[in-house]
Design a protein around this nucleic acid. Structure first.
Lengths: 192, 192
DNA sequence: GATCATTTTTGACATAGGGCAAAGATACTC
DNA sequence: GAGTATCTTTGCCCTATGTCAAAAATGATC
């Protein structure tokens, strides 16, 4: 049950087995069926979830009603709205399962306990936020300065496991253009 | 010299006067003339700078040679490449003064000392990174789902002090469209 | 204050990508 | 396995924005 998440933590920082045991003892296992919501816009996010199994999408609905996908997450990723979680403010996003999921969950309370008991985790979570920030910056640069074809190819490269698991129009909404246009992009690419 | 930065810190968290005095003792004052670089792409960022006076722009140059502005910063803002600074990795961005600047600087060493001596500051910097992340997310959503006119009006609203201080084509490069088109957007808006 | 450099504006034309509607293809559901 | 819902593809036409080049405006320098 905890092998994957322990391996994840060890890849970040050299935790001891006791520290990891403490970590594990605070995690809650949760199943969440396909096509259901972990978080709705306006709610306060009460979890940080590590995905043992499944696929999850985080998205925002803009003023004209269109969805913009912020993140796809699969096995070995964390999912949360960190801003909402840490500041306990209403979220701007929906978090929805695309497949049946198995999760390991931290709540504000268990995370608090963890950070008090094993301060090293503070660093791990800080690194996670920081990497998130760095990736988001790079994504903004790409969103502004590359063409649809480049965006799509880059996505395939960066997240090769995703296209097989999620509907194409979700990828279009991640990349920031219409599903019809993604279809045209794919046609063009396959013609070459 | 330290009133502004102390006020800034107090707005974040309720620091005591001794804590602030310690903070102040670690800051280095630095003047930086107009149109010079605090950081070049490829360098490792060795500072987090609080702006006492002046105006600074952070930008990236994409593969086709176009500039994408990541941030404008004026009095009371912090400037750094946090990813480069904390992980001591080469930066992707240029940080350039647009006006003569006066700064208060933390280096990796002084920041380390500060966090050890006054752990409360750990929280302040974490909040700063997190707000940065939240704002960047919202900006990505706007970049993807609003029109040039909306982007420009939103910018004016969000950063009313900036347009008077920076060249228009820099604003275009922040918003993600060409300077010519920004000019046309402005014409359209003024005609109404 | 004349000169030179940098910005901004304007106009003509080109193009990437959007919106809509219909047709095909896949995938669930009972 | 038929029927229904969802997703993807296609074609047509439309619009927002880009590109280029020139002119106009503004600003910096001696």
């Amino acid at each position: 049950m905890f092998e994957k998440i322990n391996a994840y933590a060890k890849r970040c920082l050299p935790f001891t087995d006791e520290e990891l045991a403490h970590f594990d003892s605070l995690l809650q296992y949760k199943k969440q069926p396909k096509k259901t919501f972990l978080l709705l816009e306006g709610e306060v996010c009460q979890f940080e979830a590590f995905i043992l199994k499944g696929c999850i999408r985080t998205y925002h609905i803009d003023q004209s009603g269109a969805e913009v996908t912020l993140q796809f997450a699969i096995e070995d990723w964390w999912v949360s709205d960190i801003t909402s979680f840490t500041e306990q403010k209403p979220s701007l996003v929906y978090i929805e399962t695309l497949e049946d999921c198995e999760l390991l969950i931290l709540t504000p309370e268990t995370k608090e306990k963890l950070l008090t008991a094993v301060p090293g985790f503070e660093r791990m979570f800080r690194l996670m936020v920081q990497r998130n920030l760095a990736q988001l910056q790079e994504r903004l640069f790409r969103t502004i300065s590359t063409t649809a074809v480049e965006k799509y190819l880059d996505f395939l490269n960066r997240y090769p496991a995703i296209p097989q698991r999620v509907a194409q129009h979700y990828i279009a909404s991640y990349l920031g253009f219409s599903p019809e246009f993604l279809s045209k992009v794919r046609k063009k690419l396959s013609a070459q």
